[in-house]
Computed example of a mutant assay.
Amino acid sequence: MTMPAAIKAVREAFVGLAAEEFDLPPRQAFGDSRSLVMAVHHRPTGSTAVKVISIEVERDPMITGTVVYSHSDGQFVTDAVSLTTLRTGAVVGVATDLLADEDASHLALLGAGAQAVDQVRAVHAVRPLKKLVVFNRNAKKAEALLESLKDELPDTVMDVANDADEAVRDADVVCCATASTVPLFRCDSLKERVHVNAIGSYRPVMRELPEELLATAGVVVVDQVEAALSEAGEIIRAVQSGVLRLESLVELGAALGNPPLREGRTVFKSVGVAVQDWAVARLLV
């Protein structure tokens, strides 16, 4: 499956979510969020997707599991790892297309784990990249990632940064894909006009974004407010401290119907919702 096809499918799914086409119960987490169960039902087609995964931060890939897509003709079962990286990349592509400047071409990627390649592919699909800078605590993993992307991005200048602040300094788009529990960079390291995606944190104790960024961003978009308030550490902390107003959070589906202004710094925070799995599984079927 191509990344542009996945982006289109995920975009349509979030429009459908905003139109209340889905039954989407909260994600179930067990064992300190080491086991997750995600389910969704699409009423217009009568189809359902269920994903069961286990997560171990020190394992590579962190995720193992299975996705089951049920529809009128039967069931489709697939491995959760590649589907999850693809659908997570796709939602970043949707958000970047919505919020980044049309001429954005410089991506800073923080994290070189299993999610990294599809983060790059998704941004490149909507904003062709002239420059890619990667920072990872293990520099060899960053170098290996860039080596694996050379054939796909032959015209893109690539580099490994010494630290996260250096990586983001001149970027038009930033993608955070780590398991960090502390902010990855300082807000003042960012350009005044930049779009930031964060997909790594999925537990209240995890954070990738500095509080100052959430306090001063022109718009903060989330995949789903309910999910963000229960799982996104940086969103929870910023709302509780009062620097981010709950009513200022915009869900992605609503933003697609009423695009916000591309001004200043914009943020998309995703913890992942089951409509993304449904969209990609349906497209595979």
Results as ranks from 00 to 15, higher is better:
E12N: 14
P128V: 06
E152S: 12
L283H: 09
V182T: 15
P260K: 03
K131G: 05
I55Q: 03
S180Y: 07
A95N: 13
L109S: 10
A6G: 03
L107S: 08
L261N: 07
A238H: 05
V120L: 07
I199T: 12
L17F: 15
N162G: 15
E147R: 08
A49T: 11
V173S: 02
L145D: 01
A6D: 09
R11V: 04
L153E: 07
R193T: 13
V126H: 10
R34K: 12
L213S: 11
H195T: 07
A80M: 03
F22I: 02
A29F: 11
D79M: 07
P4M: 05
L249K: 09
D60Q: 08
T85P: 00
A232Q: 04
T178C: 15
P61F: 06
S201Q: 09
S148P: 01
Q119T: 01
P4Y: 06
E147C: 04
S35H: 12
S180F: 08
P4E: 06
S105C: 13
D188S: 15
N162L: 10
R237Q: 14
E226M: 07
D155A: 13
N136D: 13
A108M: 09
L36F: 06
S72L: 04
V219F: 08
R87I: 00
A5M: 01
V126S: 11
Q224V: 08
R127F: 12
R262T: 14
L256I: 14
F185I: 14
F185G: 13
A171K: 10
L98C: 11
V250D: 01
D101Q: 14
D188I: 03
T88L: 00
R186V: 02
K131N: 06
I63A: 05
K141Q: 09
A167H: 11
H41Q: 02
L110W: 07
R87Y: 00
L24F: 02
G242A: 13
Y69C: 03
A29R: 15
H41L: 03
D277E: 14
P4F: 08
A116L: 07
E20I: 00
L283D: 01
I63G: 00
P44S: 05
A274S: 13
V219L: 05
A6T: 05
R262V: 15
G89K: 10
A198P: 08
L283N: 04
D159R: 15
V120R: 03
D165F: 04
R137A: 07
V160Y: 01
M206I: 08
V77Q: 05
